[in-house]
Design a protein around this nucleic acid. Structure first.
Length: 101
DNA sequence: TGGATGACCTTAA
DNA sequence: ATTAAGGCCATCC
């Protein structure tokens, strides 16, 4: 496991309830400003094994960036359940819900 | 225009 | 079969 991956995982686990983070933000916090994709990768394939609250991660625009419908809805529900208002495109108000460490 | 951004796809232990 | 790392470019303001 690379230190970066570890960082990403930890950061994600730290996101408080009713808050979200963006890919780029996480990548930066993990030390690699250009690794947004890596973050995606980690989220996509390691979320189950590490019990990550992946539903609290959205893209830079504050939207749910998932393709798979199942997962998309799963995230949508999770977010709303936590009290986050989600718009019609799965969009949330970043200025309100983005977590700033 | 150009810079930021990305929920993938392939390869390796 | 399972699990992690790496990558490089199309897309969208």
């Amino acid at each position: 496991m690379t230190p970066f991956t570890k960082q990403v995982i930890e950061i994600i686990q730290i996101i408080p309830k009713s808050k979200v983070m963006t890919y780029g933000q996480i990548a930066r916090l993990a030390g690699s400003p250009r690794a947004a994709r890596q973050v995606v990768r980690v989220l996509h394939s390691m979320s189950k094994k590490y019990n990550l609250p992946w539903h609290r991660v959205v893209n830079a625009k504050g939207e749910i960036a998932i393709k798979d419908d199942e997962s998309y809805h799963e995230q949508l529900m999770s977010l709303e359940y936590e009290g986050i208002e989600v718009g019609i495109h799965g969009k949330v108000d970043l200025s309100k819900y983005q977590w700033l460490p």
